[in-house]
Design a protein around this nucleic acid. Structure first.
Lengths: 228, 228
DNA sequence: TTCATAGTTCGATCCTAACCGAAGCATCGT
DNA sequence: ACGATGCTTCGGTTAGGATCGAACTATGAA
């Protein structure tokens, strides 16, 4: 009767609203302290502490001590991945934590998905790269083409070093707001870093939103024209 | 602070052991009655009834009345998909519902993953098809080749009709026991149906196990030789 | 009609776990 | 050394929800 892995424990860990909010906050990819996470969860630090201990025991989080702070991050990108898959389902079925508020449009426009760009802009970027032949979409998979590689070199991304990492270069990730794929993998991460480094965009504190500067937005839209 | 979809509600639904067991049972793809699900969850029918109502309200299940029975199935293959993604994570982190029992080996060998073949045999089948060039693995994606299409025709699968469906033909699905990919999508489903129709294998009641007959096993192993 | 089976609803019990106040460590700055 | 800050542990309270017995509804069989 009892077969296979136990999903109940994981479900229970995610099932508490405070913990779910903390996990969602950590989907931003940034390491957060226990106090910050307590705020994100809407609870006191004591309560947060016990929650964090449970999440860590469940291998969903890891912590790193730094001075008198403890920085928590998702244990692994596999955690971010299956959380996003649940979010995708949740979004499709109208599981929303609130009525769409003022932050919502900004979040749908551009946000961080663990370590890469998501939202309208994330989807546009991938579509544009596919449209101009920088990336081939084959079945579920994404493959960087030769011409794509040289184009990336021009904007300052050395694909060669990325390839040496064990992590896949291109990976598609389902976007919960757009319900279409955006670009994940080490290349997705590199592109986001590139934009942030250039000052085209910056992250907002305590949120997954990514805000583009006027100039950055201009450059981005020019670099990734819409495909009709 | 509160952004994005609410994963807590879904987590809570999965987080109860009885509900998780019922959902896992439904991953077998077969429609089950409330009484059968109560047994799968290890609870009385009254309790099961309230659980099932909650799961249905949460859009994880649908029911179909037939006479005095109510048959429950997963609402959608998207449910099966994200459940499997959680299972994949759970299996990798040692979340097991029990010490490995007598059924465990059979389950690892061949089982149903919603509607296609998983386990050792599922992984072997995909590896073998890739090895002989019937399927190309490109990045994350899988693509059926011309030669693969004709080979499938020989065993009685008409790829053309499958292609007309909206569902993707080939899709890779992470196997929680083998931790490698097996073949999902409409082709994965068609292959499993094909084996069952030919009598090579049959499902076992109340379990996700797929049991091959001696002759069926011989044929299967011959058709999908191991790749070294 | 009458009985049996499948399932739901109600009511009451009971237990887990979330929660916070207070106190205790650990680390940093001065 | 001393206070301030970040975090954990302990203890006691409370609330939510899982559970089942019993009663009720619905469908099928005889």
């Amino acid at each position: 009767m009892k077969e296979g892995p136990d999903i109940a424990q994981i479900g229970a860990l995610i099932g508490d609203p405070a913990r779910a909010n903390m996990l969602t906050a950590l989907m931003g990819g940034k390491a957060l302290t226990a106090t910050e996470l307590a705020a994100a969860g809407g609870i006191t630090v004591q309560t947060a502490s016990t929650h964090l201990a449970k999440l860590e025991a469940g291998n969903l989080l890891t912590q790193r001590k730094q001075g008198r702070h403890r920085y928590f991050t998702l244990a692994d990108d596999s955690v971010g991945k299956f959380l996003e898959s649940i979010m995708g389902f949740a979004a499709g079925r109208g599981y929303l934590r609130h009525k769409p508020g003022p932050k919502e449009p900004a979040l749908r426009k551009a946000r961080i998905c663990y370590d890469h760009l998501a939202g309208d802009y994330g989807v546009r970027m991938l579509d544009s790269m596919i449209g101009r032949g920088a990336i081939d979409a084959i079945g579920d998979g994404l493959v960087l083409t030769k011409s794509g590689e040289t184009a990336l070199k021009d904007i300052g991304i050395d694909v060669h070093t990325l390839k040496s990492s064990r992590r896949p270069l291109c990976r598609s990730c389902l976007d919960w707001s757009e319900r279409r794929a955006h670009l994940a993998g080490s290349l997705g991460k590199a592109l986001l870093s590139n934009f942030l480094d250039k000052g085209w965009a910056h992250r907002t504190a305590g949120s997954r939103c990514v805000v583009f500067s006027p100039e950055g937005e201009r450059q981005f839209l020019m670099l990734f024209p819409a495909i009709k």
